[in-house]
């Protein structure tokens, strides 16, 4: 590890006295591989990958885990978390996860999907997997844009938002309305825990990790489908710096996609809201 930049803290202690194993409070989990992530600087994917990896490690379920990667920026998720993975066709991850989970009832199976993958081309698969109450975790990254293909409109693109295919802003007459698919998912009796989180602040990351932990535990307890939306940034697609993208998300995305739990129960019960 590179230590050259840190020399001495002024006055009290030598920096080398602090950098000791017993003082370690935060480090990269061993479940993340050494492959550098291909994501753009500041991308939310890296944070969500990290907390998933931390949880799989902390909960001791590496040997039971099978991840399903989407088509989209997270297609290479399998390069980063040290578990068995499958790469699904665009939008089909919930069907793939269903197949895995049905013939391997003891496995912890999760999908990791973006908004184009989950809410557009894969809308049928996600609805039916959640409706059947498959014992899987769905991690849904909503950044309101197609990242990998170059920043086109997604179902979740906000009204007026400029993308490569809405160069004058999303026009609802032409393109319809931004889809709050997580709210629809929460209405399905097959789901157990449905929540919307964000990872643009340290507090948000910690909260999101708690939500994911609960979601994973629900899957392990066979309570039905757990669904965690993470409102995210795509600073390259949004054409903003990472910090400005976080701010834009807070001011524009979160008011339309408010954070918080939408359903916390077991499958078979309808949502209260």
């Amino acid at each position: 590890m590179e230590l050259k930049e840190v020399t001495k803290t002024e006055g009290t202690m030598d920096i080398q006295d602090i950098l000791k194993p017993e003082n370690l409070v935060y480090q990269k989990t061993k479940l993340l591989t050494d492959t550098p992530m291909h994501y753009c600087p500041g991308c939310s994917h890296g944070v969500v990958h990290k907390i998933l990896a931390e949880l799989i490690d902390e909960m001791g379920i590496q040997e039971r885990s099978v991840g399903v990667a989407p088509v989209g920026c997270a297609v290479f998720a399998y390069n980063y978390i040290d578990i068995d993975w499958q790469e699904a066709a665009h939008g089909r991850a919930p069907a793939v996860a269903t197949g895995i989970a049905r013939v391997n009832p003891d496995a912890f199976v999760f999908t990791y999907q973006g908004d184009g993958d989950l809410a557009s081309i894969g809308a049928a698969e996600i609805m039916h997997a959640c409706n059947r109450g498959e014992n899987i975790l769905v991690v849904f990254i909503n950044n309101g844009i197609y990242g990998m293909t170059g920043g086109q409109m997604a179902p979740t693109t906000l009204e007026g938002m400029v993308t490569a295919t809405t160069p004058y802003g999303r026009n609802t007459d032409l393109n319809g309305y931004p889809m709050r698919i997580t709210n629809l998912i929460a209405q399905l009796p097959g789901t157990s825990y449905v929540t919307r989180q964000a990872v643009h602040t340290a507090g948000g990351v910690r909260k999101c990790k708690r939500a994911l932990k609960k979601a994973i535990q629900n899957v392990l307890d066979k309570k039905g489908t757990s669904f965690v939306e993470v409102v995210s940034t795509c600073n390259s697609g949004w054409k903003l710096s990472p910090v400005a993208a976080n701010k834009w998300m807070e001011e524009n995305m979160i008011p339309y996609y408010p954070l918080g739990d939408m359903k916390d129960s077991v499958k078979g019960e309808h949502s209260e809201n």
Binding site: M1, V6, K8, T9, E10, G11, T12, M13, I15, D17, I18, L19, K20, E22, N23, L24, V25, Y26, Q27, K28, T29, L32, P36, M37, Y39, P41, G42, C43, S44, H45, G46, V47, K50, V199, H200, T201, A202, V205, R206
Partner: peptide
């Protein structure tokens, strides 16, 4: 400004590339 660090780990937590290790004493 190393003297100001309290080891809260916020930087490590938000880092998308997990390249920050945090120590506290």
């Amino acid at each position: 400004s190393p003297e100001a660090c309290v080891g809260c780990a916020n930087c490590g937590v938000v880092c998308p590339d997990t390249c920050i290790t945090v120590y506290r004493t």
